[in-house]
Design a protein around this nucleic acid. Structure first.
Lengths: 347, 347
DNA sequence: TGGCCGCATGTAATCGATTGCATCGCAAGT
DNA sequence: ACTTGCGATGCAATCGATTACATGCGGCCA
């Protein structure tokens, strides 16, 4: 029955309020430029017609889409999705939409991201990891796309991007020292994926702490991982096959730690009786795992919120003179997956 | 140094190829309408100028944004984020962008979603849960927003929406029967959040299976949950305080199951020795939990992919005559959190 | 009284792509 | 040879909002 009306335009509002579209536009975007009387008439007209802005038209004219693009390596990982949650909330608050681009793979990932800007679909990019290489990132920020960019989670050394991150090397060192303090001397590490900045930072923190304590790290004790449970599980198999096993392992994130523990348990090893394990991230499941995981809590919500704020500030306030570097501090959460080391009775 | 060139427009391409913009537009969107020679010249010109379409301009003219909106209740939950992952992949393949709207709360959530359409930012809506009530949903599909809608995960009975979902009642009944088959007779259930369709369906399946087996369900044995770990943990406390405890529990999802098990373990109860637990979803962690969780695997990737395909087909092919109902079947995954029931030696 | 200023508002160009209609040229049909 | 038809292309309107510039009006000052 209902006639399929088109959505009302600014013309309809103007006609209803008996003013020009220019005045309507002004009344909506800078009310102080319009006299009180007309302002009221226009606001009535908006009400009456049920007007909403056509964002496409505005975008075309203003070259602004009120949308940010979030690039993530893997949205299924709850570490990232929690950050995305915070970003979305903050963006919505400031009137921005959030486009997601997950696992930008293919021949030229930066190109895929860049196209969002060339086609004017997004105003700025929030990148949640550094799996793009520096070259590609730089290309993004150059003409013609010239993407306003904030990199979260990771920092690219010497590069001129705004970054919001946590202090990974320090936190990794802290986690490692926690194991050392408990008497462990043979400590291994399951790394993040190759080519990832986080991998470097956490590994570096680990190595530094070991070094400072005067402890050796055998090459065997560095297990390759990729932040996913399966890789932790694979590390467990490797671990079990070793002759001279570490008595503790610092995993680059909670998921890896969980996979690792699960692999060990299958073969009858128990944590923390037989081995101590520290994770990283403090996912929700860390608290509820068996054993509850000792881990490093990253302020993920804060991180996402700050990253979004930073990006939107840049978009609205123009270009910052020099790249901002915001570093949040993580917090060590000690639970039951780590315990004091007691040397086995020697034969 | 570099001059801040504007991004090239279709005018630039036209000038370069010495044709009109109309021809360029046609060459790009329906090449067969343009002669081979000019087509080649234009494609060279595109190459040379580095042209990319201005999506805002196209949106304005065509009243189409090539963007879909995904509404989710909680993106942090890896159940949803996995589906979103699949959606995003499928959408990208078909040239669509994905806007996310997480936890649409506030006074009028449907309004917030609807505004994306009124402002022409999205062409269609993919709703990943049914926490909106029917009234609000109906309002969305009416003029003036008239949103093409596909509801995933949940089905609203008697309503005329396209839906893609899994067979929850059946899967829930299946999970329950698995416990019954193992000799359990006193079986409890931790529900989903109030007002959620999934809660109803899984509860219904559970009740039906119990009923068919001639088993009673005490009111105490239905624990209120909300799909989050904390609620499972809370259920554990409730469970522990009970006199006549069930010997098995079917949790409405894996997260709840995990929280529940973690609460029990704190008090020294062990699974599956003291209790059998079945989850739902088969999250990655289910396999790596201790004990590995018996659960119901929902084809999440498939679900996301189908939902996205369905929506995009509708967007591109016009309106379907009658609402599509796609029901995927889930699969029971039996691991170690369930075991044969042995009655305790009676005193 | 005349000139000037500034506020409120209108007029019309503009953003970039699409598309209905017009035009042109060439080939085929009678 | 003249018309008809069709394929290829151009012209110009259009989508809806913004905004530079123009206009008109009232008040203020000299």
């Amino acid at each position: 029955m209902s006639i399929a009306r088109k959505t009302p335009t600014i013309q309809d509002v103007a006609r209803f309020a008996r003013v020009s579209t220019a005045t309507v536009s002004r009344a909506l975007s800078s009310p102080e430029r319009v006299s009180e009387g007309t302002r009221a008439r226009i606001s009535d007209a908006v009400e009456a017609t049920g007007y909403t802005l056509n964002q496409a038209a505005r975008s075309l004219r203003q070259r602004t889409s009120k949308t940010i693009l979030v690039g993530l390596p893997d949205i299924r990982n709850s570490f990232f999705s929690t950050i995305l949650d915070a970003i979305e909330r903050e963006a919505a608050l400031r009137g921005y939409g959030v486009l997601v681009c997950n696992r930008y793979s293919g021949p030229n990932p930066a190109r895929r991201l860049g196209e969002y800007f060339l086609s004017h679909r997004a105003d700025g990019l929030l990148l949640l990891d550094g799996s793009l290489d520096l070259e590609q990132l730089l290309e993004l920020t150059r003409e013609p796309s010239a993407v306003p960019l904030v990199v979260a989670c990771e920092e690219i050394p010497d590069a001129s991007f705004h970054t919001v991150k946590t202090d990974n090397p320090r936190a990794a060192a802290h986690a490692t020292r926690h194991l050392i303090d408990q008497g462990h001397t043979r400590i291994g590490h399951i790394t993040g994926p190759a080519g990832n900045v986080l991998r470097q930072e956490r590994l570096a923190g680990f190595m530094q702490a070991m070094d400072e304590a005067g402890l050796k790290v055998l090459p065997d004790w560095i297990f390759p991982g990729n932040f996913m449970m399966e890789s932790g599980y694979a590390a467990a198999l490797q671990y079990l096959a070793m002759a001279n096993r570490p008595s503790a392992v610092f995993a680059a994130n909670d998921e890896t730690a969980i996979g690792f523990l699960s692999g060990l348990r299958e073969q009858g090893l128990e944590c923390p009786r037989d081995i101590s394990v520290v994770g990283f991230d403090d996912l929700a499941v860390a608290l509820h795992y068996s054993p509850p995981l000792t881990t490093v809590r990253q302020p993920r919500e804060k991180l996402g919120q700050l990253a979004a704020q930073t990006l939107i500030n840049i978009l609205e306030g123009g270009v910052e003179a020099k790249p901002l570097r915001i570093v949040l501090t993580s917090e060590m959460i000690i639970r039951s997956s780590t315990a004091r080391y007691f040397p086995p009775p020697h034969s």
